[in-house]
Every structure is written in structure tokens, then in C-alpha cells.
């Protein structure tokens, strides 16, 4: 839906210093463009729970991190999200790929469609779902609103298959 250069340029403009990530087939290809930016560094981690806590350390250290993962990784991240967003009250922002959202007819059995939104609600994450390329501007809008309010938030990017 979005290209790597589009995302990389936007994140740099928004002042994101580190993108902490585990890839999927939609957000993974953005890595190359992010790595080319001078002011945004890519940090690769082994599992998504780590990503939130690395972002917590970055935030405590004065940086402006962003977590970039798939919704499967959101499921993996529960205890870290609880700790970072709710215990320590750190305003970490995330971009999360919503697997199979755009393929509901061909992939009706993907349980990501069943659990992603309830899990986001359970963790009290203020999220916007983007389903069309024309909604690109919403990323900056929601990110900036969350930053101004010093609250966590997420952009959920609708994806095709796994």
C-alpha cells in the first residue's frame, strides 16, 4: 500500500530516530529505504516483545523510537506492552501490519482477522486502521497527535496475505 521511500522519508520528517522491528512481507521491504536515511536508524530484534522494551530504553535515553511489527508480533508482545505502556507509561508509537485484512475473501480462515482489533482494544492502544493508499496522511496526523499528548498510539496498516 505504501512504498519504503514514502515511509522512510515520513519517519525521518517526524523525527523518528530509531525504528525497532521484526519484518513481515509488507513492512519488511521498507527496511532498505529506512536504512538509507541519515537520521533514522533501523534496530533489528529477534522477537516483538523485545521491540517494545528496546523502544522503552531508547525513549528513556532521550531518543524518539518507533516499533514496526506485524499483528502476529503484537500477540507475542503482550507482557512487554503492558509493562512499557501501562506500568512505565512511556508514549511508544507503533506501525503494525494487519495480516490478511485485504484478502478476506481468499484467506477467510486467518485468525489474525479475529484477534487483532480485540487485542489492540484490550491493551488500550489508540489506533487508526489504514486500508487505502490515500490515507497516507493519517500516519503523520495520528503520530503527531499522540506525540503532542504524550500518549502511546498505533497505525494499523492493512495487508494482503502472510
Amino acid at each position: 500500500m505504501f512504498t519504503g521511500p514514502q515511509i522512510a522519508e515520513l519517519l525521518e520528517q517526524l523525527g523518528v530516530t530509531h525504528v525497532v522491528t521484526v519484518p513481515d512481507s509488507t513492512i519488511g521491504p521498507w527496511q532498505a529505504a529506512i536504512e538509507q536515511r541519515e537520521r533514522t536508524r533501523l534496530v533489528r530484534v529477534c522477537r516483538e516483545g523485545e521491540a517494545w522494551e528496546v523502544a522503552a530504553g531508547l525513549h528513556l535515553g532521550g531518543a524518539s523510537p518507533l516499533v514496526m511489527i506485524q499483528c502476529t508480533g503484537l500477540f507475542e508482545s503482550g507482557d512487554a506492552i503492558r509493562n512499557v505502556l501501562h506500568d512505565w507509561k512511556l508514549p511508544v508509537f507503533a506501525i503494525i501490519g494487519y495480516r490478511s485484512y485485504l484478502n478476506q475473501d481468499t484467506l477467510p480462515g486467518d485468525t489474525c482477522l479475529v484477534f487483532t482489533e480485540p487485542v489492540l482494544d484490550a491493551w488500550k492502544i489508540d489506533y487508526h486502521i489504514l486500508t487505502k493508499p490515500e490515507q497516507f496522511g493519517s500516519i503523520a496526523e495520528h503520530f503527531s497527535a499522540c506525540r503532542a499528548a504524550s500518549t502511546p498510539g498505533a497505525i494499523i496498516v492493512a495487508e494482503g496475505g502472510a
Binding site: 530516530t17 522494551e53 528496546v54 522503552a56 530504553g57 528513556l60 509493562n83
Partner: peptide, 22 residues
């Protein structure tokens, strides 16, 4: 940084973030 409350296992990850930021 007394990491209590924690998410068990994640002190090393917080440390990584801090080390990169500082």
C-alpha cells in the same frame, strides 16, 4: 533504573535501547 515492575526477561532489551540512545 530499578526495573520493577518489569516484563520478565526484558531488562537486557531496555538496556539495549538505553545503550543506543546514550
Amino acid at each position: 533504573l530499578v526495573f520493577v515492575p518489569s516484563a520478565m526477561g526484558h531488562a537486557t532489551s531496555v538496556g539495549l535501547g538505553l545503550a543506543l540512545a546514550q
